[in-house]
């Protein structure tokens, strides 16, 4: 296991690790203005690392994420847009969500429609 990134703010944190064929990005807290300054560069960096490492999947674990604002959603959308332009054989993106965080079902449905062939949503 290799740690790729770690961000700690008062009400937001994100860590990314590389394990086998996967990169796992876990976000917790509130993805709002405090997260915004980090998210776009983090996702750009993970996109590059995913290509370098040849991973099959990037798992995005948001089960402990209380909320994500539309500015941060935009960063996810831009990442999905870049990832779906990769040649066939690129990585897939799997969102791990919580059924208790109702906003996640709605937001992830919209994201999965945006990149239908790229995104999988798992709820627990």
């Amino acid at each position: 296991m290799t740690q790729l990134a770690s961000i700690v703010e008062a009400k937001f944190s994100a860590t990314a690790i590389h394990v086998g064929d996967d990169i796992i990005l876990e976000m917790t807290g509130n993805a709002d203005v405090a997260a915004k300054q980090h998210l776009a560069p983090l996702l750009q960096s993970l996109h590059e690392r995913a290509k370098q490492l040849g991973v099959k999947r990037v798992q995005v674990d948001i089960r402990k994420l209380a909320f994500m604002n539309s500015s941060c959603l935009k960063d996810l959308i831009s990442w999905l847009d870049r990832a779906r332009l990769e040649p066939a054989g690129g990585y897939r993106i799997v969102f791990l969500s919580s059924a208790n965080q109702h906003w996640q079902k709605r937001s992830l449905h919209a994201l999965s429609c945006f990149a239908r062939d790229l995104v999988t949503v798992e709820a627990s």
Binding site: S71, K74, A110, C113
Partner: peptide, 16 residues
């Protein structure tokens, strides 16, 4: 979905 596509082209704000 159209707003999302437009958002990828925006420099400032998401418009979402």
């Amino acid at each position: 979905q159209n707003y999302m596509s437009r958002a990828t082209l925006r420099k400032d704000g998401s418009g979402l």
